[in-house]
Design a protein around this nucleic acid. Sequence first.
DNA 1: AGGAAAGTTGCGTTCCACGAACTTTTGCGT
DNA 2: ACGCAAAAGTTCGTGGAACGCAACTTTCCT
Lengths: 203, 203
Amino acid sequence: MSGLRERKKEATRTALSWAAIRLTIEHGWNAVRVEDIAAAVGVSPRTYNNYFSSKAEAIAFRYLERSLRLAAELRHGPHGEPLWEAVTRAALRQLEPGPEVGHMPPRAPDEWAAGLRVMLAEPALEAEMLRASKIAEKELAAAIADRTGTDPGSDLYPRLVAASVMAANNVALELFVQGGTGEPIEVLLPRALRMVATGLPTA
Amino acid sequence: MSGLRERKKEATRTALSWAAIRLTIEHGWNAVRVEDIAAAVGVSPRTYNNYFSSKAEAIAFRYLERSLRLAAELRHGPHGEPLWEAVTRAALRQLEPGPEVGHMPPRAPDEWAAGLRVMLAEPALEAEMLRASKIAEKELAAAIADRTGTDPGSDLYPRLVAASVMAANNVALELFVQGGTGEPIEVLLPRALRMVATGLPTA
DNA sequence: AGGAAAGTTGCGTTCCACGAACTTTTGCGT
DNA sequence: ACGCAAAAGTTCGTGGAACGCAACTTTCCT
């Protein structure tokens, strides 16, 4: 693995994903054709569909990768660390910008955020993002089951933890992008995680 | 409201939803055309799209209604009841079969369950179900915010509770339909809810 | 270098989603 | 009871997404 061929494939995939996101934020979901995304990357429309099986999937892909990193971080961390500490660390880790910078203009962060909100309001997009969440949740449950010696096929525990972590993650992220509070995500996310970890008695 | 006209509309809507579900379970997602669903209800294909804006939406509709009932139950319950008791009651309530019996043959429950699993494996369906979950979650968060005097726009609490409740609900349901344990849903669901309510320390 | 494997492309098909204009049905006021 | 306005439903046409298939091109391996 990791041959030249496969790295080129990954490059094309992320390029398509970025192009889809950028074009959608700039011109709106309905105004962007698959043809446009393919053209922006210099590839045929047919090839686009070899990489992604729907227009929405390309956009959710970046989010999927991020979420999968959470599970991966959890697996690679030190094995002695208490579960919730490890989870929190992994969740914060996943927020750090990866090697993706450069695809995206750091220009006009306000416009970008606004465009993001508009984009995620699209039903098809929202649905696809949630599906990505779900896929990552499954990975996460497996990682947690490994750590705790439980079985995702028969125990509630690992699935519940995974679902709760993703829930906390998503809630914190939503609240952040909607700007309900001025608090940074680095504060919101650990707080949300601590809350689901320790319980949610009537406030 | 509740005029004859609107009740007829609701009847058509649920008929379409049931037809979509039945046909999909019987013949598979790809084998069913929108045309078939419309024909099964005696309506034009265009009318189908006046009720649902995608093929998947009709199938998720029943699940959406159920999930919305959860939030509604929570609102209508006694106001003095402790939050988590009220939530558990509402969650169990929502499982009881509504006035929908009759649309569906109680025949061959095994085939039905198997068909369900196959159906939900379809990416487009899974995504749409998750979107329905999300919509219900928003309602639930509003109901919880009302009860607890918090604000979904700025507080983590009501959103987290809503997300956790839906997570517990979904996890319990999944585990149940996958038959991982022989336990009935009436046992699984309250247990899952108690777990997220009281916290998830490493088991 | 040369053949096999993997990736890309063009083409054709099917079907979904929806706008616009028209017809039918339904509820309501007099 | 009648007739009319509004709502629901239908017909028609358009655009575009997704994908199977077969030809073609690039990359890899020895």
